[in-house]
């Protein structure tokens, strides 16, 4: 079993997960989260991720270990980008290999959902109108002012 979650400042190579393939795994699932040009109706030009690495790596590895335990997959891997990203760049890559496809799809879905929910990562969007903002902080601002 392989468990490894990484944070990187460099562009993510989509081939990086290929080492998880092996002859006991008939299923290989990879999810790429990419920078999209719109969010909440606004045109996005680029993104910035700020990450607290010590806890992000620790929590990321916990999530990968949970996936192995829950879904009987053989090997899992995750990597999240930090810093400035352009449209189309890979922000996060999750890779799972397993004997069969059901477990591979389910484990991959579990990992990306938990990564988004639990890792200390913040996203700043830069918009076409010149403004910029931290995602999810508009809502917390409104709630805090009530």
């Amino acid at each position: 079993m392989t468990v490894s979650f990484e944070i990187t400042d460099r562009p993510i190579d989509r081939a990086i997960g290929q080492h998880l393939a092996d002859q006991a795994s008939g299923a290989f699932v990879a999810f790429e989260g990419r920078v999209r040009n719109r969010n909440d109706g606004r045109e996005v030009l680029r993104l910035e991720y700020e990450i607290y690495r010590p806890l992000a790596v620790k929590e990321g590895n916990r999530i990968l270990a949970e996936a192995i335990q829950r879904y009987s997959v053989r090997r899992v891997y995750g990597i999240h980008r930090s810093g400035l990203l352009e449209l189309g760049d890979i922000a996060v890559l999750i890779v799972v290999s397993a004997p069969y496809r059901d477990e591979a799809f389910e484990a991959c879905r579990y990992i990306i959902d938990e990564v988004k929910r639990r890792l200390p990562i913040w996203k700043k969007e830069y918009y076409a109108d010149g403004e910029a903002g931290w995602v999810n902080c508009q809502r917390c601002s409104q709630a805090g002012s009530n």
Binding site: G33, A91, W122, K123, N136
Partner: peptide, 10 residues
């Protein structure tokens, strides 16, 4: 003590 505003990874 670390204070984290709402997170938004992925």
């Amino acid at each position: 003590v670390l204070f984290f505003p709402p997170i938004a990874g992925g």
